[in-house]
């Protein structure tokens, strides 16, 4: 293949984020509850933009770039901006400032139900997901079989997802999300939450997917996952990069900080 002229990496896949900032406007009723939740945080994150609207700064001056082979772990407390950063990388939230460039097809495993419609059957949701990815009917049938094989839903596949147990929903969502192999894989931590039996089974499939993706970005609280999978870590704090580097560099500092916060909280 021929690389585009502006393309710095030979095989084309790459993630480039420069000075990214994301702000959320606070408009609606739900925003008011959001405001209350966030009120506990530093007040510096609220500001008024040029049009005098209340906005919350979800991400501020984020810069990094990833090349094939990079596995990036995002760590940070609740509300640090991990999921927002993943959404910005997926192109769902377009930058308010700065720039995001992604080369290579993306698969984003963000929501627990992946935008599945709970009223539709498992099979219909598989079909929709395949159409989202622009796959041919033939490929969609392959994926259907693949998902059926892994998720073991049996005749539930033709029942509305609403009737599934929460474990079944996770199995279906997981199987579905992992059956479309992307070059850039964005993953939120819920994916690693499952019962032990499921996790054992999921491990292989997930590791396979991660191995095949050229770039992985994963947000997680499980430092074990970061240690074993990631080559780089970004520690997000209040929407800003507190520290970035290898897991050996960042994780001890992060743990130390968490311990201090915990003691302060207890005191």
């Amino acid at each position: 293949m021929i690389a585009a002229p502006s393309c710095p990496v030979p095989n084309g896949t790459g993630v480039e984020v420069s000075d990214l900032s994301v702000t959320f406007p606070l408009y609606h009723g739900s925003a008011r509850t959001l405001r209350r939740t966030l009120a506990k945080m530093r007040s510096t994150r609220f500001e008024q933009d040029q049009q005098q609207r209340m906005v919350v700064q979800a991400l501020r001056s984020i810069s990094f770039s990833l090349k094939p082979g990079d596995r990036l772990g995002l760590v940070g407390g609740n509300g640090a901006g991990k999921t927002t950063l993943l959404r910005a990388l997926a192109g769902i939230y377009e930058p308010v400032g700065g720039r995001v460039t992604i080369r290579g097809e993306i698969n984003a495993l963000l929501d627990t139900n992946l935008g599945m419609n709970l009223e539709l059957t498992g099979r219909e949701n598989i079909g929709l997901r395949g159409l989202h990815a622009g796959l041919s009917p033939r490929r969609i049938r392959d994926i259907e079989e693949d998902v059926q094989g892994f998720a073991e839903l049996g005749s539930f596949l033709d029942m509305p997802v609403r009737t599934y147990s929460s474990g079944m929903v996770i199995r279906l969502g997981f199987a579905l999300a992992t059956s479309i192999r992307p070059r850039v894989l964005l993953m939120d931590e819920w994916f690693l939450a499952g019962d032990a039996i499921f996790m054992n089974k999921a491990q292989d499939r997930l590791e396979n997917l991660v191995r095949q993706a050229e770039i992985l970005v994963i947000s997680t609280h499980l430092l074990k996952v970061v240690e074993s999978w990631c080559t780089r870590v970004i520690w997000l704090d209040h929407g800003m990069i507190r520290m970035q580097g290898t897991p050996e560099e960042v994780l001890p500092a992060y743990l130390a900080d968490e311990a201090t916060t915990a003691t302060e909280g207890a005191a």
Partner: peptide
Amino acid sequence: MSTAHGPAGSAHAEPLLDLQPET
């Protein structure tokens, strides 16, 4: 490093996302 391509990934049509505040 694995360079396995996704089954849907064709080399000539590289999806590109380039997002920044719009002019």
